[in-house]
């Protein structure tokens, strides 16, 4: 047994020798050339601290978040922690103190009621400047071929076109991402349309369906929304439903009107709002247009940039807009 141990030791020695030889020509050492960068990171603006930014899973949101994160890091010296979360979990994060801000909120009156009004752990801090449009859309080739299809009154005329294996003999209305509350079943019923709502189940499913419909020139009508990066690839055409008026959608079962235009807004945690963090000021001041967001979204979705690269590029191109968002002291 002793012999074998000696053999083992000898083996170790051989390998160690080889290692020494290797390290002689080992190249750059870890930490050698990073000293300067490390000291630059902590520099001076540590007042911001950590900023927990929720990132909801769609590209437009990511554009908002990337730009805000970029500015917070570079201008305010914040340590931004991005958390990839679905909306409900993100809101829940206000209560557990794990999320400081949501920077593109689509409605969600029930969540607002729970977390802002009841639990008082969150506050709304104004619009992002983006307008959210929800509704029924058809691919452009259909709008061209059947110009009157964009009026809901003509939908029944075309119901046969939209029949699929899923719709049980009626026209198929492809509903979408389960994240959004839809009134579509009620709408179909109340507008007496010969359609059946079929749940695609995910944004990916919706986009793929529209993409294929345009490419293969197959008929499709479905639920969609804008701003959305896909709109810059295929400009879907909205079908006009009876116009939205205040209160027409109060009773979910009796809805017979279009969706309202959403002013997308920003929500922060109460704690974050009270912290006096410069990042809070940034979030509060953040405001841009649909076009701005679409540019950044396009960088991400079509040009294959990472969110960080896209934000950096846009920020470099729009220094004035950034200046307006910065807290007075930092500016």
């Amino acid at each position: 047994m002793a012999v074998s141990w000696i053999a083992g030791l000898r083996a170790c020695a051989v390998v160690a020798g080889a290692a020494l030889l290797l390290s002689g020509c080992g190249g750059a050492k870890v930490g050698e050339d990073t000293g300067a960068q490390a000291s630059g990171d902590g520099g001076g603006k540590s007042a911001c601290g950590t900023f927990n930014l929720a990132v909801n899973p769609w590209v437009g949101y990511e554009a908002n978040a990337a730009v805000i994160a970029h500015v917070a890091e570079k201008e305010l010296g914040c340590n931004v922690v991005k958390k990839d979360l679905k909306e409900e979990v993100a809101w829940q994060g206000f209560a557990t103190g794990e999320v400081d801000a949501i920077v593109e909120n689509w409605g969600h009156e029930d969540l607002k009621k729970k977390y802002i009004d009841e639990q008082k752990v969150a506050v709304a801090v104004g619009p992002t400047g983006n307008k959210g449009v929800i509704g029924w859309f058809v691919p452009p080739w259909m709008a061209e071929k059947y110009p009157d299809i964009t009026d809901w009154k003509n939908l029944n005329k075309y119901a046969d076109l939209f029949k699929t294996s899923e719709s049980g003999g009626k026209g198929q209305l492809l509903d979408g991402d389960p994240s959004f509350v839809t009134n579509d079943e009620a709408l179909v019923k109340n507008l007496k349309l010969d359609f059946k709502v079929v749940y695609a189940g995910s944004e990916a499913a919706l986009i793929t369906a529209f993409r294929q419909a345009e490419k293969q020139k197959t008929p499709l009508i479905g639920y969609f929304y804008d701003p959305q990066w896909f709109m810059s690839e295929v400009k879907l055409v909205k079908v006009d439903l009876p116009e939205w008026t205040e209160g027409c959608d109060a009773d979910a079962a009796k809805v017979a009107c279009d969706y309202p235009v959403y002013d997308l807004d920003k929500i922060v945690s109460k704690k974050f709002a009270d912290s006096g963090s410069p990042a809070y000021e940034l979030v509060k001041n953040f405001n841009w247009t649909n076009d701005d967001q679409n540019v950044v979204s396009k960088y991400i979705s079509e040009d294959g940039m990472t969110a960080e690269q896209a934000a950096e590029k846009w920020v470099a191109d729009n220094p004035d807009k950034i200046k307006a968002w910065l807290p007075a002291a930092a500016g």
Binding site: A11, C12, V14, V15, A16, A18, A19, L22, S23, G26, G27, A28, K29, V30, E32
Partner: peptide, 15 residues
């Protein structure tokens, strides 16, 4: 032993 060497290298050298 070989593993220890690799770990050491990866701890110290950037490459």
């Amino acid at each position: 032993a070989a593993t220890a060497v690799l770990v050491y290298l990866s701890h110290v050298y950037v490459w």
